[in-house]
Amino acid sequence: MTSPSPDLAPVVDIRDLHFRYDARDVLRGINMRVPRGKVVAIMGGSGCGKTTLMRLIGGQLRPRGGELKVFGESIADINRERLYDLRRRMGMLFQFGALFTDMSVYDNVAFPLHEHTDLPEELIRDLVLMKLHAVGLRGAAHLMPNELSGGMARRVALARTIALDPQLIMYDEPFTGLDPISLSVIGQLIRRLNDALGASSIVVTHDVQESLQIVDYIYFVSEGRIAAEGTPDEIRASTDPWVHQFVWGESDGPVPFQYPARPYREALLGSADA
């Protein structure tokens, strides 16, 4: 873990990371490591800060405390040009794909290639079709984004994400709103592309069952801290009540059903001012 060789250093290395929106503490001391070549899942209930964590890794937000290193560089300390250099080595798949609605599928996938390379058009064409083939949508190249189903749109977005062969791929809730077939297609793609590209992946999700099948390591985030971590087998076998509740989807447990409030009786009988 603490090897000096840069090749073995983790792609993402987070120590005691803090972040707050206005007055609300979102992250309170996160420690996390994404080793090279692995698929790591970040899980947690809605609003626990896992998407925030990913935006911090992508440099869209700046941390307020702690250390956040991506590719060995501290995201908080670099300027915009350096950040954009780092981002060329990253890919992020947004929750609903975020395809450019005024461009065809082909142009969407070709977009990063056009913006960042001077490759001849024929070569770009070959690359685009190759990426689309990898997600099984080579035949959809001429369609517009509004003609795609949710699952197809996400696969196109995935092809666009990997257009420049990133070394770190991040997925923001890739399973949300998909039917079981699309869901398992995306799940398999995440694993296959990671291994084929020799990249590392971070999957932010709350879909436990799908993730347990494809990832190498899991972090559970709760209330801005890492509540539990381990390999899928360790997580399944965990006796921690919190992990148990999350993995088996029980409605009540350490995570209460009720949002923190005054006692119900007091609220009903008490005065109106809150």
Binding site: G58, A98, E115, R160
Partner: peptide, 17 residues
Amino acid sequence: LMKATEQLSAMAMMAVN
């Protein structure tokens, strides 16, 4: 609309300002 559908964020994450 591009902002609401995260197209601008996606662009920024592709290192395109």
